[in-house]
Design a protein around this nucleic acid. Structure first.
Lengths: 168, 168
DNA sequence: TATTGTTATACTCTATAACTATA
DNA sequence: TATAGTTATAGAGTATAACAATA
C-alpha cells in the first residue's frame, strides 16, 4: 500500500509543518494530504480577505456561473438540502445573493447573485487562480505541464465514484 | 496569471463534479482545487468510517505520534488555543485520548492517546495511505514518481510562508 | 405520491474576550 | 509580566426529523 516503503508514522497525515519539520522524505499519502492542505489554506485565506467564509465563496462562484435551486446547490456541496437554507440566508443577509422565484414552479426558488456578489466572486476567483499558479512556480515549465496532466488524469479517473467534494 | 489562458468561469473553483460535467479542459487552478477536494473528501469519508470527525482523526494522529500540550496542538491546527479545549474534551469523552499532567509544570497538560485512540489512529492512517495510493493508480509508475517529486518540490517551496494547513 | 424548500433541534468547530493558576 | 489552560459567548456549517406547499 505504501508506495515508497518509508516508515510512515501517523504524524505524516497531519499536514502541519510543525509536526514534520524534520527532513523525512514524504510518501505519496503525506504529499497529497499536505498539498491539499496548502490549497485549502490558500482558498480559505483568500476568502477571508474578501470577508467571506470558504463555503460562501464557493456558493457565490456556483451561482455566479448559473443561478441554481436549493436542491441543486445541496448536490453541488454534497450536503443535505436543509443545510442550504441557512447558507443562503447568510449570503442573502449580506447582500451577495438573493432568492428569486421560478416562473412555472411555485415551490422552487433560484439563488441569483447580486452585483456585489458577482464582483466578489470574480475577484475571489481571480486571486485564487493567481495564487495557485504561483504555487506551481517552483516547477519547470515542462514540469508544470506534466503536473497538470497528471492531476487531470487523476481527476478524470474519479469522475463518478466521488459525488461530493470538499472545497467547502 | 492564468497559466493556460483558458476562459475560466467562476464555476471552475467550485470543485463539484456536477458543475463541470462538460468537457472543458481544466486550468491549473481548477485542477488543484478539485484534487484537493478529492483528498479532503476521502480523508473525511475515512474518518467517518471510523466514527471520527476529520479534526478528531487529525488530533489522534498528532498525539499518537507524540503527546502534546494544548498550546502546541493549537499551533499544529493553526487555531486559537481556546478551540483546543472543546476538541480535547470531545476525544476525551469518547475515550480516545486523555489529559495527563506534566511533572515540572503544574499549569501544563499533555494530551496522550488511549489504547483505543492509538488503534483508531493507526487504522485511520493505514486506510488513508491505501486509498491515496489508489488515487494515483491511473498514473504510470514513472508518472507517479514525477508526480510525487513535483508535489514535494511545491511543498518544500512553501515551508515557512504557510504556517497553518487545512486538513482539519 | 414525489419533489421543493423550510423549521426545529442538536452537535462540531472556531473566534474573541475575560479569567485562573502557575512560572 | 508572560505562559498554560479554561470559561463564556457567539457564529458558521452540518445532520436529522418533521413539516408545508406544490407538482
Amino acid at each position: 500500500m505504501d508506495d515508497s516503503g518509508q516508515t510512515a508514522t501517523s504524524a505524516g497525515l497531519v499536514t502541519a509543518p510543525h509536526v514534520l519539520d524534520g527532513e523525512q522524505p514524504l510518501d505519496v499519502a503525506d504529499a497529497l494530504v499536505r498539498l491539499s492542505g496548502l490549497v485549502q489554506g490558500l482558498y480559505a485565506r483568500i476568502a477571508e480577505r474578501h470577508d467571506l467564509t470558504p463555503v460562501q465563496a464557493k456558493l457565490l462562484c456556483i451561482v455566479a456561473d448559473r443561478p441554481r435551486g436549493m436542491a441543486d446547490l445541496a448536490r453541488c456541496f454534497g450536503v443535505e438540502k436543509a443545510a442550504l437554507t441557512g447558507l443562503v440566508d447568510r449570503v442573502e443577509r449580506r447582500g451577495l445573493a438573493a432568492r428569486s422565484s421560478v416562473p412555472g414552479d411555485r415551490r422552487a426558488v433560484q439563488v441569483v447573485p447580486t452585483d456585489a456578489g458577482r464582483q466578489a466572486s470574480a475577484a475571489f476567483h481571480a486571486e485564487v487562480s493567481a495564487e495557485l499558479s504561483r504555487l506551481l512556480e517552483p516547477l519547470s515549465p515542462a514540469g508544470r505541464d506534466q503536473f497538470r496532466a497528471a492531476v487531470a488524469q487523476i481527476i478524470a479517473a474519479c469522475q463518478g465514484h466521488g459525488p461530493d467534494d470538499g472545497t467547502g
